[in-house]
Amino acid sequence: MTETKHSQLVDSVRRDILKLIQEHNLAPGARLVERKLGEELKVSRSPIRKALQALEAEGTVERSPQGGIVVSEVPAELPPHPGAADENEVYYKLAEERLNGQLPDRITENFLLRHYDLTRTELTELLRRISNEGWIERLPGYGWEFQPMLDTVTVYQDSYRFRLTLEPAAILEPSFVVNREKLLKCREEQQRLVDGGIWEASNAELFDSNSALHETIMNCSNNTFFSDALQKVDKLRRLIEYRKSLPRDRALARCKEHLAIIDLLLDGKLETASTYMREHLSSVSLEKTSDQEAATDAP
């Protein structure tokens, strides 16, 4: 490891220890054990020891008369990490690089730490987020594996043709029962977007809000096969949706259509809602796949 990389690792570990002191509310006198810190931060004892030496020089930790290192002063706030980017910026950069084929199917945490200049804590939060979204899974040990996703225009179009068959039909299932509580919650979220939230929402937030509505409607069918199928498609299409989300004025129009579908369902007008759902998906499919084709054909 070069001197520069070693210094970056030690600084990253130093910040992680500071964050652990804060998060665990460790009071002055609390003992810090190198081995336990290494296990929690998944690094060897050498950078742990050097990070503790740096913290000792700063006065945050000190050597106990009984031996070992203890907390001396609880930091009021973490110092800024000069190399770290905004959390969402790193998230979208990772998503874009994965979609572009710049990242392998399997990856190590040490590579991610260096590549995105993250602290261990920041990386843990990032991996937790994308793991919860279903596009990466932990391997035995410290490695991770990216899950399959939609990464071509043709397959993306196929996903919409599948949804056009599935979602309108689900509303007409004999077992379909309107879940008023959950639909009203979705309506509140869609109304928030229509009332101006659409202009501030990130691509990820917009995707989550809209996919949650469609999955809620699908769950009303009380057909496990329908619900599972849509959830799987949503996981597969998440990253390509980030790449080319609709312009916000067009996304606003689609959120208004969501409100109309919800109101039809709440009024018990299932056949009309099914027809409207088909029209809605057809319009969105045409807009998004034509945009994807334009992006692909662009020089």
Score class of each variant (00 low, 15 high):
86 D>H: 08
66 Q>F: 11
13 V>R: 03
34 E>D: 15
94 L>T: 02
262 I>P: 04
102 Q>V: 01
8 Q>P: 06
287 E>W: 05
218 M>S: 10
140 P>W: 06
284 V>P: 00
158 D>K: 00
15 R>K: 08
35 R>G: 11
238 R>H: 06
198 I>G: 03
87 E>D: 15
245 S>Q: 11
130 I>H: 00
253 A>I: 14
222 N>P: 01
269 K>F: 08
76 A>C: 03
59 G>C: 10
234 D>T: 13
6 H>L: 13
64 S>T: 09
91 Y>K: 10
184 L>Y: 08
15 R>P: 03
68 G>C: 03
182 K>S: 13
71 V>Y: 01
174 P>I: 08
61 V>R: 05
117 D>L: 10
288 K>R: 13
87 E>S: 14
56 E>F: 04
107 I>P: 01
275 T>S: 14
69 I>P: 01
255 C>Q: 13
274 S>W: 03
51 A>L: 02
114 R>P: 03
190 Q>K: 11
93 K>A: 10
70 V>K: 08
63 R>Y: 11
87 E>H: 14
201 A>Q: 07
198 I>F: 02
88 N>Q: 15
282 S>E: 11
264 L>R: 08
132 N>V: 13
202 S>D: 11
229 A>W: 10
182 K>G: 07
55 L>H: 04
58 E>M: 07
7 S>T: 14
86 D>Q: 04
6 H>K: 14
193 L>T: 04
207 F>G: 05
59 G>D: 10
117 D>T: 14
189 E>G: 08
59 G>Q: 10
241 E>Q: 12
67 G>K: 01
270 L>M: 10
184 L>F: 09
2 T>P: 15
197 G>E: 05
176 F>D: 05
220 C>P: 00
221 S>Q: 00
254 R>Q: 14
43 V>W: 01
212 A>R: 14
169 A>P: 00
267 D>A: 15
50 K>M: 14
185 K>H: 14
294 A>L: 10
59 G>F: 09
1 M>K: 12
28 P>E: 02
241 E>S: 15
47 P>C: 02
295 A>H: 12
287 E>I: 04
21 I>P: 03
150 L>S: 10
197 G>P: 02
112 L>P: 01
148 P>F: 06
66 Q>E: 15
29 G>D: 09
89 E>N: 11
287 E>N: 04
40 E>H: 13
138 R>A: 14
230 L>C: 05
197 G>W: 05
253 A>C: 11
277 M>L: 10
87 E>K: 13
150 L>D: 07
12 S>F: 04
203 N>P: 15
190 Q>G: 06
55 L>D: 03
223 N>R: 12
261 I>A: 09
70 V>W: 08
10 V>M: 00
109 E>F: 09
72 S>I: 04
259 L>R: 08
201 A>F: 11
179 N>K: 05
15 R>Q: 08
106 R>I: 11
134 G>C: 00
242 Y>Q: 09
78 L>W: 06
251 A>N: 09
196 G>V: 00
236 L>E: 07
10 V>W: 00
39 E>M: 12
133 E>A: 09
181 E>Y: 07
39 E>A: 14
